[in-house]
Design a protein around this nucleic acid. Structure first.
Lengths: 162, 162
DNA sequence: ACTCTTTAGTTGAAGCAACAACCAATTAGG
DNA sequence: CCTAATTGGTTGTTGCTTCAACTAAAGAGT
């Protein structure tokens, strides 16, 4: 089959997207690590818990929301539990399952970390764009996720298309 | 200082960008790993070399283009050299420096891997967007990189703004 | 010439993440 | 019921990234 190579316009857009995808995680990690002693993954997991009902999620659900494998989440949860930021307890309804629940300490940590994180997001992303571009990014994100995450697992807590 | 929280519109765009940034590397890695036995980082490094004059770049230059630390690149280069895809040789002009040069085998590897990679990029990104959105993504990428990569190190081989 | 600093790169140890193997609890089939 | 298959999680290796220390060459100052 003949390859449909990228046109110059497509290639230009692609090169920039790759650069952003490569650089953004580092920028996020660096600020959170520096200011709050959390990796972006840890912050994200805690933030998901903080917005969940009863600040509690099943390990499997949290793994999907944070795009992690279950083994990875298990290791991370063990570290966070050792730091007192969450607790794991067996689920009453299904005794195979484990519920991860944010402690008061963990909640306090999220509250402490959030302002700096939001400021960082503004600096690197939101405030670098015009209002129109923010809306375009919203649409583009939906289009890309329809191919990358057709089941909407990562964006589960946020209704799509809004 | 009072935190300027994200508006709903901003938050929606941000959530989608985070999801894309989280998912895209995995999608890229999986296809290249499966079809060509290369990580995305390895492919990217080889591709940069393949477009450089004489298929040769200084280690430092290649590290900047691929957003890698020098130690990381050194380890990866050692592995790629062991596989016969590139060679490292001391630089004549500056004997501290090392030049990485793509071998014929490495060139063949890039030629073999490129079509599948491009098809994957089309499937996950380019073909999921309208022509207008591709152009918008180009602009948005420039705006984000002006904050993330002000010196344009990663996009060094491609002139900005085109 | 001789030191001191900076630059370029490599190496070795330590920390995460992925994969695989495993155990426990639930569900389905005969 | 009693077995088999599936689901939910945890626990050990393997490989790559990162961090810190080290070698070596180039340049700067005296």
């Amino acid at each position: 089959m003949d390859t449909r190579w990228l046109t110059p316009v497509e290639r230009a857009a692609w090169v920039r997207l790759v650069a952003v995808v490569e650089l953004l995680p580092g920028a996020l990690d660096a600020q959170l690590r520096e200011d709050s002693g959390l990796t972006h993954f840890e912050y994200f997991a805690l933030a998901m818990l903080s917005e969940a009902p009863d600040r509690t999620l099943r390990m499997t659900a949290l793994a999907q929301l944070s795009n992690a494998t279950l083994p990875r989440l298990s290791h991370v949860a063990k570290r966070l539990e050792a730091r007192g930021l969450l607790v794991r307890e067996p689920c009453a309804e299904d005794r195979r399952a484990t519920n991860a629940r944010l402690t008061d300490e963990g909640w306090a940590k999220v509250v402490e970390a959030a302002p700096g994180h939001v400021a960082n997001v503004r600096r690197h992303v939101v405030d670098a764009l015009t209002g129109d571009q923010v809306r375009q990014l919203h649409e583009i994100g939906d289009a890309l996720l329809s191919a990358l995450d057709p089941d909407g697992r990562m964006t589960g807590l946020y209704e799509p298309g809004t």
